[in-house]
Every structure is written in C-alpha cells, then in structure tokens.
Amino acid sequence: MSANGAKNISVQYFAMLREQRGLSKESLATHAQSAAALYEELRFQHGFTLPLERMRVIVNESFQPWDVSLSEGDEVVFVPPVAGG
C-alpha cells in the first residue's frame, strides 16, 4: 500500500477497451474500493464507451461479481462482450 492509502493494481485491456486506452496493460494506483468503481474511474478518465452492464471482470484469474473488493496487488482484467466463432 502506498503512503496515501492508494492500492497498486495491475489492469489488462482487450479489444475495444485496449484501443480506447491505447495500451493493453498498465499498473496504477487507485482508491477505488470495488472493481465497478475502478471501471467507472477509468471509463471517465479514458472515455470508454462500453457501459459496465455489458462487461465482465476477472480478478486474479477468475470471474468475479462487479462489487468484488480490490486489494493491493490484484490483477484486474476487464472483459468486453465476446464474439468468438
């Protein structure tokens, strides 16, 4: 945990989010309590057009509900709606 109480989180982006963010992976410090709060924070910063309801979130390699709380060192992946096949 950093001096001001922010958590260090690694975030990974795919597809449209990666393009809108301009990179696929980053480490950042945040005060966001939940995955949802972190997404909204980043959405505001980077202008992501996908609303949270259409996305899913993976924390430390498993799918989690959006209200999952975040801890120092968590690895978060925002998963846009998929279209395989």
Binding site: F14, A15, M16, A83, G84, G85
Partner: peptide
Amino acid sequence: EVKKRVPIWKKEHYSDGDSGWVNCEC
C-alpha cells in the same frame, strides 16, 4: 457456448474503410 463465454473478440473491417468490434458497439 464458445460464442457466449470464451473471451475472443472480433473486429470487422469494412469496404468503406470503417471498422468495428462486433458485439462491442453500443
């Protein structure tokens, strides 16, 4: 199920030069 659940994304490029992520556009 693969189409629904597997995290694979498809980006289409169109003849008019435009492109878009399938299922991601609002």
